[in-house]
């Protein structure tokens, strides 16, 4: 697998194969795949609407964009952690570039995320709260968010190949992320120290606050211009560390498969 043309062809074929083997190959399937976030949204909405929702403007839309953001992050990282194991035969029997395999693996979750975020933007426009700046901010932030998920996923994928229980630990963390991210509450509603930890130690928080602010066109407590800068910095740092670790350890990991 040497030429650029062959690599692009492989990427195209693998993405098409991923799409065909997913629900996303039909419009009805795409709608069906939206059932997961919708179900989480319904349950979370009915549980938290009285406790938190009354004090949050456009609570349903804020909640939905938070769930979609978190859902993409956890799904992508989980996909990438399983990347080496699920592609074991390909790694051991071909010279297919890892970057292409990874991109094709992320294609369907990314498509799903973009569709869901587009839906949020359409609702926002329908409600008359979407501004051109909000739309532009969302579009600019999405690539950074993909980089963040890819970077953390790659780092954990290497760790997962070297230590079998990484995925189990990640799954516990992934399930608790909905509680330690501002999905159904806003930062001033929790204690200051908890708010501080969630703002700075959870890399998803700046993205979630920014997207919620852009999509709902409202002032989200905790969101400032520097939140976007913080999000971009987290994304670049995570991707740099993840990709470097991945490239450095790639052959060693393949040999341990």
């Amino acid at each position: 697998m040497q030429t650029r043309r062959q690599k692009l062809n492989l990427l195209k074929v693998l993405c098409a194969a991923q799409l065909r083997s997913s629900d996303y190959r039909t419009a009805a399937g795409a709608l069906w795949s939206f059932m997961g976030p919708l179900l989480t949204f319904s349950v979370t909405y009915f549980i938290f609407v009285d406790r938190f929702g009354r004090n949050i403007p456009y609570f349903p839309l804020t909640l939905l964009s938070g769930i979609i953001t978190l859902s993409f992050f956890t799904n992508s990282v989980t996909y990438i952690i399983r990347f080496f194991r699920s592609n074991r035969e390909i790694f051991l029997n071909s010279r297919a570039p890892a970057g292409i395999l990874l991109a094709s693996h992320l294609f369907v979750p990314l498509l799903k995320f973009l569709t869901e975020i587009s839906l949020c933007l359409i609702i926002s426009a329908f409600l008359g709260i979407l501004s051109p700046a909000g739309l532009a901010g969302t579009i600019l932030l999405l690539p950074c968010f993909v980089l963040l998920a890819a970077g953390i996923g790659l780092y954990l994928a290497v760790l997962g190949a070297l230590a079998g229980d990484t995925e189990e630990i990640w799954m516990v963390l992934a399930h608790s992320l909905i509680f330690i991210s501002p999905v159904f509450y806003q930062l001033p509603m929790i204690s200051p120290w908890a708010g501080f930890l969630i703002s700075y130690l959870n890399p998803v928080t700046p993205f979630m606050l920014s997207l919620q602010a852009f999509i709902t066109g409202q002032h989200i407590p905790g969101f400032e211009t520097r939140t976007v800068v913080q999000a971009a910095a987290y994304a670049l740092a995570a991707f740099f560390i993840g990709w470097k670790t991945f490239k450095k350890m790639e052959k060693q990991v393949v040999e341990s498969l």
Partner: peptide, 15 residues
């Protein structure tokens, strides 16, 4: 049929 395209792409063959 779809797998033939995937296997071919691994061997460097275009669509």
């Amino acid at each position: 049929a779809d797998n033939i395209y995937v296997l071919g792409a691994y061997q460097g063959l275009t669509v």
